[in-house]
């Protein structure tokens, strides 16, 4: 119907993505001229050898992390909003984020408490990623066990929130008994960070997100049916339980994997699907899924660039930037359109 319009929009978004990618890697604590940044990408000659090292091993992995986390979080948000038919649902309503926080908290703070008895392994990026992904998957598994028993999707939403509350409470108790140094380490983790991933970790994250996207593609048809409501979807031949399982699994992989590697990143999952629906004015998931992936990636790259405070030595917490930039945009869109299209 609007095939040409969509194709044009996607081309524009791709161009925008490439531009944002270049901007993102040209800023950092070390000033590198833009021309040198570009030639570093294409393996050209540089004025200083260290610049090439910085761009290849620090800035490019960081920008790719931004693309993966932005796209992944946005997609998981879209899946949750359609599954729950609730515009306020995000990837973290199922307690995925709080599960990851719990895993990280137990590793960082629990280790210090038990250090008299055991000598735990070091707290580093790898162990943190393992702990937080274990945490998020344990919470996700319990939610899925409950989901198999509960028929009502709204009840599932509330159960997810309850799981979130429980894990948040445990984290509070742990924080209360821990010392300042560990608490600071935990808080730093909860700020979120895109810059800590090595190429091999990035590869693992890419595989997880790729799997999540792959599963999502197979749920497009039932996602569209879910727009009519669960009963209508069933009458259209959608295998509700199976599809619900697949959607939750994809969300878990996307949101869980991202939180494990980059910490909890707020707002993207909730806001990008809304932005995309407003701009594309459609609810067809065949359009929405690639669109939210691109929008999420672009928005994340922009936030990352801003968090870098161009050409300064400081990096602001990405979690705060995503909210500061994004929330006003959603408010503005809602005021302009006067209603939340879903």
């Amino acid at each position: 119907m609007h095939q040409k319009k969509y194709t044009l929009a996607f081309i524009l978004l791709l161009v925008l993505l490439v531009i944002c990618f270049c901007i993102s890697i040209s800023f950092g604590s070390v000033t590198i001229p833009f021309t040198d940044t570009i030639s570093a990408i294409f393996g050209g000659e540089l004025q200083k050898e260290s610049w090439g090292y910085i761009i290849r091993n620090y800035r490019i992995p960081k920008a790719i992390t931004a693309i993966l986390t932005g796209g992944g979080l946005a997609l998981s948000g879209l899946l949750m909003q359609t599954l729950f038919r609730n515009p306020l649902a995000g990837p973290f309503v199922l307690g995925i984020s709080s599960g990851a926080s719990l895993g990280a908290a137990i590793l960082i703070m629990g280790a210090s408490m038990l250090s008299g008895i055991f000598t735990f392994g070091v707290v580093n990026n790898v162990t943190l990623a393992i702990a937080s992904s274990t945490g998020s998957f344990l919470v996700l598994l319990s939610v899925m066990v409950v989901a198999a028993k509960v028929k009502d999707t709204m009840a599932l939403l509330i159960i997810g929130l309850m799981f979130g509350s429980i894990t948040a409470a445990i984290v509070s108790v742990l924080s209360y008994f821990t010392d300042a140094e560990q608490l600071q380490q935990y808080i730093y983790w909860s700020f979120g960070s895109l810059g800590n991933l090595s190429w091999s970790q990035l590869g693992l994250l890419a595989i997880i997100i790729g799997t999540g996207i792959f599963i999502s593609i197979f749920t497009i048809k039932s996602l569209n049916a879910f727009l009519l409501g669960e009963n209508y979807a069933r009458s259209l031949g959608v295998h509700i339980k199976k599809q619900r399982f697949l959607i939750i699994l994809a969300t878990g992989l996307l949101a869980g994997g991202i939180t494990a590697f980059a910490g909890p990143i707020a707002f993207i999952g909730l806001a990008v699907p809304h932005l995309t629906r407003q701009v594309f004015n459609t609810t067809n998931h065949k359009i929405l899924i690639p669109a939210v992936l691109l929008y999420g990636a672009i928005l994340m790259l922009l936030c990352d660039t801003i968090a870098q405070l161009p050409s300064s030595a400081y990096v602001l917490p990405i979690n705060a930037i995503t909210s500061i930039i994004g929330a006003p945009v959603v408010i503005w869109l809602l005021i302009r359109k006067k209603k939340m299209v879903f």
Binding site: R85, I217, F218, I220, K221, N224, A225, F226, L227, L228, G229, N231, Y232, L236, G237, V238, R277, T283, N284, K286, V341, F342
Partner: peptide
Amino acid sequence: TEKIASKNLTSLEVIALGRQPYTNWIG
């Protein structure tokens, strides 16, 4: 009797969803 979940669909899209039992894996 229940209302459809997303009112942002066009009439045509709602009607087209009726073809889901016959369409391929991606609709």
